[in-house]
Design a binder for these strands. Structure first.
Lengths: 292, 292
DNA sequence: GTCGATTACGTATTACGTAACAATT
DNA sequence: AATTGTTACGTAATACGTAATCGAC
């Protein structure tokens, strides 16, 4: 039976040109390589090299064998990767959501319910991308901002999120009881990155605003306190991070500032994940803050 | 690095159901199998079995691994076969012809010109099959009964073959100086099998004849002498086997009883095979009889 | 003289089978 | 009691590196 290591050695020899160089690369001695290739030729019953006194050159058979060897090793790699991936997928809950808030909740909920599982989270803006990824088992659970109608998938509402603008009391707009995107457009606004579909909402509704995007959440929170720049908050982030006495929160009245999140997962997971809707009732968002 | 033998063992275990049965099939001890599978799991960093005290069962990972193992072993088999095939093809001249006579000649000619090569011969009735097979390098040289017009292929006439009927002098038709298929139709005729396109000629032109087909050429030749049955011969077989004093040879006058053979091979072989046309001139067919 | 490949040889690793054991049916 | 899988252990196969050899540049 072929030895995959011999095939690997063959490929390295083809690349290196000589046995000695290949042996250096492979961290073995030249004699060992000589013997390996003899063995391989024995196994195949085919001469792979033209041997001169102190030179060994791949012949036509050898060139062909190299091509096939790569295919075989590829297939073997493939096996390892896919089996490992499959194994890992069974030990991992992978979440993806169109916005960060659902991830905060689900991360916390799953971590407590399935402490032995590892949990990954992604943000994917597009709802249909989320669904196809769910169907392809790239994610265990996804969260969209519209209900999903699909025979294989369970989808129900998790919670609502409403957008506010947070302003310093001295800001000219701070006296309003509610506000529209149109009224905000043009303001410089502090923004957190990786906010999923909210990003598109901003670009569409306040195209003339200068958006100061910040990657790091803790830096973002510091800037919020230290600067007088307006920034977006929601009913969720207020519960999560608490109120800020130096700020005024003004609800945004546009339709697109009000979102409903829908969780979606395969029906086969109904029993395992059915508890989520109950856990989301009166959910304590403060728990979702990571203390680092 | 994976061990292909371990993959093979895994597959056998999946088929056999238990380690002990698999060990019997593989002609090794159970402990050896236990260790092999432990190694394989180590290599993959993945559990492949659910282990109970005296029972070992493939888990989901294992089932998946079996599928991939089959793919890997297939690829390895593929490598062996194709490399061996390629090697052999370089040491073999494979001939195919629409009738046996050209094979007799080419077999002899190649054997003398390239004594180190091994030579195979086939009979393929259909001309276009012959050409596609030649183009796919399944054959080195083919012989058709019509000239081939193709840019990559050299094709020229080798020789002609004319059909005769061989009759005992007492036969009612034996006085004719020439004869047609129509006149022959209905006669019982002794026939050699594996005669290529001649077979179709017979079926089309003497559909009412009873054809007594004989596989073995030497048996056929004996029957020819011992029986009084008519049998077909040609200008070639007469030269090859000599005349038979007890028989009358009457040429068949139909157009389809006269054939011209055309050899065809790749242009890249022009230099190696150019000599053939010369060798075929005044070819001594007696040489082509195999003395067994 | 240096470099590259092979051969010879002693050693270290590895892989195997037997035997003993544990647990299930 | 018979079957199945694992562990322990001594042995046999093997694969390796070092050293020596032979040619080529």
């Amino acid at each position: 039976m072929l030895d995959l290591y011999h095939l690997h050695q063959l490929i390295i020899i083809a690349e290196a040109g000589t046995l000695s160089k290949a042996a250096e690369i492979l961290l073995i001695s030249q004699p060992a390589l000589t013997r390996s290739m003899k063995k391989l030729e024995d196994e195949l019953h085919v001469q792979l090299f033209d041997r001169k006194k102190n030179r060994i050159i791949l012949n036509d058979n050898g060139e062909l064998a190299v091509k096939y060897a790569k295919k075989v090793l590829n297939e073997a790699d493939n096996m390892i990767n896919n089996v490992q991936l499959y194994d890992k997928s069974k030990k991992t809950i992978s979440i993806a959501s169109c916005a960060p808030a659902p991830n905060w909740a689900l991360q916390y909920i799953f971590k407590n319910k399935f402490p032995e599982m590892s949990i990954t989270e992604d943000i994917v803006e597009n709802n249909s991308q989320l669904i196809t990824a769910l169907k392809n088992n790239l994610y265990t659970v996804v969260v969209t901002n519209e209900p999903i109608d699909d025979n294989d998938i369970i989808s129900y509402q998790l919670f609502k999120e409403n957008l506010y603008i947070s302003l310093p009391p001295a800001h000219p707009l701070s006296t309003l009881s509610e506000i529209t995107f149109d009224e905000l457009d043009g303001e410089s606004i502090l923004l957190l990155s990786k906010i999923g579909f909210w990003n598109k909402i901003c670009l569409q509704n306040i195209p003339d605003s200068h958006l100061l995007t910040q990657n790091d959440e803790s830096v973002f929170n510091e800037l919020k306190h230290l600067s007088t720049l307006p920034n977006f908050i929601t009913n969720i982030t207020i519960q999560r991070n608490g109120e800020n006495d130096n700020r005024v929160h003004i609800p945004i009245s546009d339709q697109s500032a009000h979102v409903e999140y829908y969780i979606a997962y395969h029906k086969k997971n109904k029993k395992s994940f059915g508890f989520i809707s109950k856990d989301m009732k009166n959910f304590d968002w403060k728990k979702t803050i990571h203390n680092s």
